[in-house]
Design a protein around this nucleic acid. Structure first.
Lengths: 230, 230
DNA sequence: CGTGACCTTGAGTAGGTTCAATTTGCGTGG
DNA sequence: CCACGCAAATTGAACCTACTCAAGGTCACG
């Protein structure tokens, strides 16, 4: 039951995804959808029937507060599973929008329950994946508690680096979302995001150009964020 | 599958709790523990074997960051289930400490999986409860994104009011945690918490005295927090 | 009662926001 | 393929919120 958090997460996802795709071919409910930048996968208050495997691209989820302001709750990347926060109420509590050209594999949630005898681990794996998400959100909460914006931005970038699972520090990473989106997510303004990025870059912790960046000095970065990445 | 979020949550919890207690009596694994203020239920990195039903009192969970600083991730009240964020890695990612004299009912997690035939809904209900927690965390994230501390504190208090499920605005509610804990949780200092509380009280949105408070002007409070309580 | 933890209040300061101007980057159509 | 136009990003300056440091008050518990 005990594993390295990241490799286990990867294996867990792969297992779930393969089970889900198998399930969907049996029940004929699976469907691949291509998304353009800005396309909605589902929107807040839609009835919950499907979960989505993100085959490529990236997605943000957000809630719309009264005034029409959107508040970003999560970013999803390849192999993430999107939509299961709808399980409890039967409606999606957030909207999901593609940040770039993406593709998703849609699966009917009810079909998952039906096939527990064929894939006895599936439901338990789903539990574990959700537990994982709770865990991640708690880390994010810790991030938002940081006083300094520069730390928040540093943690955010480092988190993307971690999730990418690339071994080399020199791999170029992509920021599919805008500075405004990052600010929205981190609870700071886009100007402050920009200033923090500039500062991190000037101090040679990261190198960044537009939507592409990489980690230059991993140790100093970790030190800055107090050893507590998201 | 569709219900009123709060009443369904209540029913969901009750169902899970009764199933769990039934399970534990069959397997003889259940155990009630009385806790004094400050007692630990489990600590970070302990192996995950049990989940706990909070029979009475209140509990906080927190992670310890490098430097020894604690970061509070969640507060739990009566009938909450504590500990399932340990499912994914097999160890608790947080410590849990009693905020006051409390009692918990301990259940071995493995026993839950065994009894799926006796209680077929149990695992699914657990899924829903976890989905619910993800959902709640997302709301919290939204809260921490608010710029003004006064809004954060207002949301925090309002949330306690909502969770208490009391119908009357005039019911006196309890704040089992210290101002420092609230600040830690909300990402602000205890002084700012105190000032915000004073201001909310002066403007007659709430009435507060020490650890007891109540909502005086629910409408104005909701207006202040932009209709977006945690 | 006394003692320590918790809470409140005050004054000065640092850091983030706001508003505004400019620059950069990207997709579209000529 | 280049030029245009719009969206996104950067940078600057003034303001203001929340933090820090400090002192005093309150409450619970021995």
């Amino acid at each position: 039951m005990m594993q390295n958090p990241n490799s286990s997460l990867y294996a867990l996802r792969k297992s779930i995804i393969s089970n889900l795709i198998d399930t969907s071919t049996m029940t004929n409910s699976g469907k691949i959808t291509k998304l353009k930048k800005g396309d909605l996968v589902f929107k807040e208050c839609d009835e919950f029937h499907y979960i989505y495997i993100l085959l490529s691209g990236s997605i943000k989820t957000f809630t719309t507060i009264n005034s029409g302001t959107e508040k970003i709750t999560c970013f999803y990347y390849q192999d993430d599973i999107v939509g299961f926060s709808g399980i409890d109420t039967g409606r999606y509590p957030v909207s999901a929008k593609a940040l770039e050209a993406s593709s998703v594999f849609r699966i009917r949630f009810n079909d998952i329950e039906k096939l527990t005898d064929k894939h006895p681990n599936l439901q338990n794996n789903m539990l574990r994946l959700m537990s994982r998400q709770i865990h991640e959100n708690q880390n994010l909460l810790s991030l938002l508690g940081k006083t300094q914006s520069e730390k928040k931005v540093a943690s955010f970038l480092f988190n993307i680096y971690i999730q990418s699972c690339h071994s080399s520090t020199f791999t170029t990473l992509k920021l599919p979302m805008s500075r405004r989106d990052i600010g929205n997510y981190l609870g700071i303004t886009e100007e402050t995001v920009s200033r923090s990025i500039t500062k991190l870059s000037q101090n040679n912790l990261i190198a960044i150009s537009g939507k592409k960046f990489n980690i230059v000095d991993k140790m100093k970065l970790v030190e800055l964020i107090d050893g507590h990445p998201v």
